[in-house]
Design a protein around this nucleic acid. Structure first.
Length: 391
DNA sequence: TCTGGGGTCCTAGGACCC
DNA sequence: TCTGGGGTCCTAGGACCC
């Protein structure tokens, strides 16, 4: 049976958050700009750049969410702690993220793509896979048409990669960033994919690439020629074989156009580490807030869940989780709180904490919201006053 | 002055059932 | 009474992604 030839694109918005901010503050174009930290600020559009806060003014535990290419040239990358970023680029400007705005632009660019190619897999706020198999047009022209449509709808540039599968399309979209259009076919794999670092494979993170390096495997080509037995020994059968397939450019995974969420969560990192005894009241209040916000998220999105869990990170960054499965799915803050309390009893709180999180899993879709919001808020408020989760 | 917040998937052991 | 195997659910942790 002949294999149906697929044509898959991966489209990634260039420095998305920062680029959206540059639409708002065009006077900052060309400067090193970092998005990150907490809080929201609105700056008058006529402000001179000198009045924007600089990275060197920052104190806290935030990370860089996005950096413009000018900031990246100074060594700042997304995920980097802002304090470290400030050492590398003290004069870079720092803007807090405005997620509502980015979400609006995200919808705009996805709708623009959908007007040309409707089979889209969402991969977060700034990237998608597109199944172009059944869309008419020569590959390069079609990809350019999609990029043009995105720019027309948003004013933003994107990078697109087209290949026979998602794995290669993802690598391709990253090859010539920004504002890139890269087509990769099977015959290009040896010349264009194999020289790249194994870390470029979606699914190979910092841990795996370090382990691979210890085995003398640096590039995707090294991986393609690696000893399968040795890989299975170190990574298990499933992942070991997957690594080799990935290095050979093999990937049959489907473009998934619809997906139900598996879990919904809320978490927060404290501005300073908190002591389970000394900061008991504060920790209880933070946890109650998380439960309420999570309950509101569930209600707004139309889900309830059976498995309630807590996540807790100690000052040394070690993380523990506990969860409990209830008989009935819930979205009620009060029920969530009860389950959280059960979970907390199973954790030894002998060290300072830096993070608390609450999660609801095993989700069920619920129909209409029949709860009276006002009455519910009052009930929650009332019991908050008398409830202490840390004791 | 390291390391956010929101997710997904995988593994692995134990309970429990057939 | 012993032995065995499969399937599913629950829980905890780890790696990874945006």
């Amino acid at each position: 049976m002949p294999v149906m030839r697929r044509r898959i694109a991966h489209l990634d918005m260039d420095a998305f958050y920062a680029s959206v901010e540059l639409l708002r503050y065009p006077q900052l174009k060309g400067l090193a700009l970092v998005i990150g930290g907490r809080g929201r600020c609105d700056y008058a559009a006529e402000n001179a750049s000198a009045q924007f806060p600089r990275l060197s003014d920052y104190a806290g535990r935030g990370v860089a969410t996005t950096a413009t290419y000018e900031a990246r040239a100074l060594g700042v990358h997304s995920g980097m702690g802002l304090m470290k970023a400030a050492r590398l680029a003290p004069d870079a400007l720092l803007l807090p993220p405005d997620f509502d705005r980015y979400t609006r632009y995200s919808r705009l660019f996805k709708a623009a793509v959908a007007s040309i190619a409707p089979r889209i897999e969402d991969r977060g706020i700034d990237e998608i896979y597109i199944d172009l198999t059944d869309v008419a047009g020569e590959t390069g022209e079609l990809a350019q048409r999609i990029k043009n449509k995105v720019r027309q709808a948003t004013g933003l540039s994107s990078s697109i990669g087209v290949a026979p599968n998602k794995l290669l399309a993802k690598i391709a979209s990253d090859l010539n960033k920004p504002d890139a259009l890269t087509v990769v076919s099977e015959s290009d794999i040896a010349a264009r994919i194999w020289p790249l670092s194994a870390r470029k494979i979606n699914g190979v993170g910092p841990r795996t690439s370090a382990k691979l390096a210890a085995l003398g495997i640096q590039t995707i080509g090294d991986l393609a020629h690696a000893n399968a037995t040795e890989l299975i020994e170190h990574f298990g059968k499933h992942y070991g074989l997957w690594l080799i397939d990935a290095a050979l450019g093999r990937d049959e995974s489907a473009v998934v156009t619809e997906r139900e969420p598996k879990s919904i969560s809320r978490e927060t990192t404290f501005e300073r580490d908190l002591d389970p005894r000394g900061d008991r009241e504060l920790l209880s209040q933070i946890l109650l807030d998380l439960c309420e916000r999570l309950s509101a998220d569930l209600s707004r999105k139309g889900y309830a869940g059976k498995t309630i869990g807590v996540r807790l990170r100690y000052a040394d960054f070690t993380t523990v989780t506990r969860d409990v499965t209830l008989e009935l799915a819930t979205g009620e803050a009060e029920t969530i709180r009860g389950a959280v309390r059960t979970c907390l009893k199973r954790i030894v709180l002998d060290r300072k904490l830096r993070l608390l999180g609450v999660r609801v899993g095993s989700l069920l879709r619920i129909e209409a919201q029949r709860l009276d919001g006002g009455a519910r808020r009052n009930a929650v408020q009332e019991s908050n006053d008398s409830l202490r989760l840390f004791d």
